[in-house]
């Protein structure tokens, strides 16, 4: 995709993320409802623009469903740059991010600048979404972001380990999904998400069996 796309999508994505964040903070609307309204409205703006200027059709297909064959050197550079920036943010603001995510109101009392943390997180999220759009497509990005994290959550009760596991799961599924996509000649984004979903199912079965075993053990001790 062209630099114009990245600049335009970056600004729009960041503004949308900040708008969701501020709507949640300043109104009685919950985050889930704010995301539903603002992202759908944002998507609708895109659809209107496409219907008005039909010459975008090809690149919009790539944006919606991803196209690994269309990845150019500059896309790889963008992904690498965003990975470094997001990694640096998580590394240096880890403690503040953890406290804000756990309990934003109390974190504020303990001197964490939660508004800044939220804004930086929104920026990182928007950057990650836009960087991976070419590979995964808009429709599958949400799953690709969430599934590794919830799979990791099933495997551990520690936030530190959850971050490490979700990065490893994301990278592993990306690699395996790409290979499967090549082997079966299937869409790359969909194959990556399906690989993640398969891993999620395995983790769900393992954690359910572990929980049952623990309950059985507790009963025998009683």
């Amino acid at each position: 995709m062209s630099w114009n796309f990245y600049i335009g999508a970056g600004i729009w994505g960041f503004l949308t993320a900040v708008l969701i964040n501020q709507t949640t903070r300043r109104t009685r609307i919950g985050a889930d409802a704010a995301i539903g309204v603002i992202t759908t409205a944002s998507f609708a703006v895109g659809v209107v623009l496409i219907s008005r200027y039909r010459r975008f059709t090809q690149s919009i297909d790539a944006a919606l469903f991803g196209n690994i064959l269309g990845v150019k050197q500059q896309d790889v550079l963008v992904v690498a740059g965003v990975t470094l920036l997001v990694g640096a943010l998580i590394f240096f603001a880890y403690k503040q991010l953890l406290f804000t995510t756990f309990d934003s109101d109390v974190a504020q009392v303990y001197g964490v600048r939660t508004e800044w943390v939220d804004t930086l997180f929104a920026l990182a999220l928007a950057a990650a979404l836009i960087a991976s759009m070419q590979i995964l497509g808009v429709t599958l990005i949400a799953a690709a972001l969430v599934v590794p994290a919830i799979t990791a959550r099933l495997l551990t009760d520690s936030f530190h380990r959850m971050v490490a596991y979700s990065m490893a799961i994301g990278a592993f599924c990306g690699l395996v999904g790409m290979y499967l996509s090549y082997a079966f000649d299937a869409a790359s984004g969909a194959t990556i998400v399906l690989t993640q979903s398969a891993l999620f199912c395995i983790a769900l079965i393992i954690s359910t069996l572990q929980k049952r075993a623990a309950q059985r053990l507790a009963h025998t001790h009683v």
Partner: peptide, 13 residues
Amino acid sequence: PVTAEQVVLMGRA
């Protein structure tokens, strides 16, 4: 996902 020790250490965030 947070342990007791991790909660305590938040006080130094």
